[in-house]
């Protein structure tokens, strides 16, 4: 059976690519610290030495639109072109083409539907920065085949938070039941508190640092019970109007396993949002893998 060698959850900040490549006066003052943190985080995936990446993200009204909106969608295609005109325009993101892994896509679709998730699928999917940002931060070579999985955290009505946790558990179990000798990393990106297009956007910190501290603790300890008791579709608006993206972190908590502490925890308090990086090694940390406890990585 396939082996899950790493479960990784992260924020996806579209400005990282531009900030990390900027030089001279263009380079923002926080860029060096950000690059150092991302470089250390990248080593957690490199050490796991995966063959395939399952990538969980959310389309930002690029290919998926209100005339035909799936809640959970799995890509099944030999290739995925990536990034969109408005992401080039606003964030300077490059165009990319990533290989797909159709056999694992087919397995997740068939077995996922049979396990109670009526998954939508796409045979021609152009992916956006929710999936390319972690490629850029964690695997800039972009040399591994992927299975993209999109969730709707964006266009209400949304699935309930517990469905995200359950889908994460299901994805983990489906990968582990795949008859293959390949090593798989499950990577997903979401948000902590975030406001976009509202009065609290682009402040000196994320819109709700208290929520961010609670959220980092829930994730780092994989405390799904308290997390599910603490959030609802109704109250996720309060920390910021785009905070429903936190449900993708909840999906990754489901994939990591209840009450399983992360092997690597790090955060970076940036303008606009808090960055957060987590890695779990289901088989224990591989040799040479960096580790960092919740106490070391939690926000001050």
């Amino acid at each position: 059976m396939a082996q899950v060698v790493a479960v990784i959850a992260s924020t996806h900040h579209p400005f990282y690519y531009k900030a990390s490549n900027a030089t001279g006066e263009e380079r923002p003052p926080f860029a060096d610290e950000w690059v150092e943190k991302v470089t250390n985080f990248r080593a957690t995936l490199t050490a796991a030495d995966p063959d395939v990446l399952v990538m969980v993200g959310s389309d930002h009204f690029h290919q998926l639109w209100l005339d035909n909106m799936p809640q959970f969608l799995v890509g099944k295609a030999p290739f995925y072109d990536a990034n969109w005109h408005n992401e080039e325009r606003e964030f300077g993101l490059p165009r990319m083409t990533l290989a797909g892994h159709e056999e694992l896509s087919a397995h997740i679709l068939r077995q996922g539907i049979d396990a109670g998730f009526d998954l939508a699928f796409s045979n021609e999917l152009r992916i956006d920065h929710s999936i390319t940002c972690p490629i850029i931060t964690l695997r800039p070579e972009a040399d591994l085949p992927i299975v993209p999985i999109y969730t709707n955290i964006f266009a209400p009505p949304l699935p309930q938070p517990h469905r995200f946790v359950e889908l994460g558990r299901t994805i983990r179990s489906l990968v582990e039941s795949w008859e293959s000798d390949l090593k798989v990393a499950i990577i997903g990106t979401g948000h902590l508190s975030l406001e976009l297009g509202g009065p609290r956007q682009f402040g000196p910190t994320g819109p709700d640092p208290d929520f961010d501290r609670r959220a980092v603790e829930w994730i780092a300890k994989c405390d799904t019970q308290n997390c599910l008791e603490g959030v609802s579709l109704e109250n996720l608006w309060e920390p910021g109007n785009a905070t429903h993206g936190f449900m993708d972190f909840m999906l990754m908590m489901g994939a990591a396993g209840d009450d399983t502490p992360a092997d690597y925890v790090d955060t970076l308090d940036l303008f606009h949002t808090m960055e957060a990086y987590f890695t779990w090694y289901p088989g224990g940390p591989p040799e040479g893998a960096p580790t960092r406890t919740y106490e070391q990585g939690a926000p001050a």
Binding site: F61, N86, E90, A155, L196, G197, G198, Q201, N241
Partner: peptide, 11 residues
């Protein structure tokens, strides 16, 4: 949708 409005008016 605030994301759509923000993105277009930034442009």
């Amino acid at each position: 949708h605030p994301f759509l409005t923000l993105t277009l008016f930034i442009a």
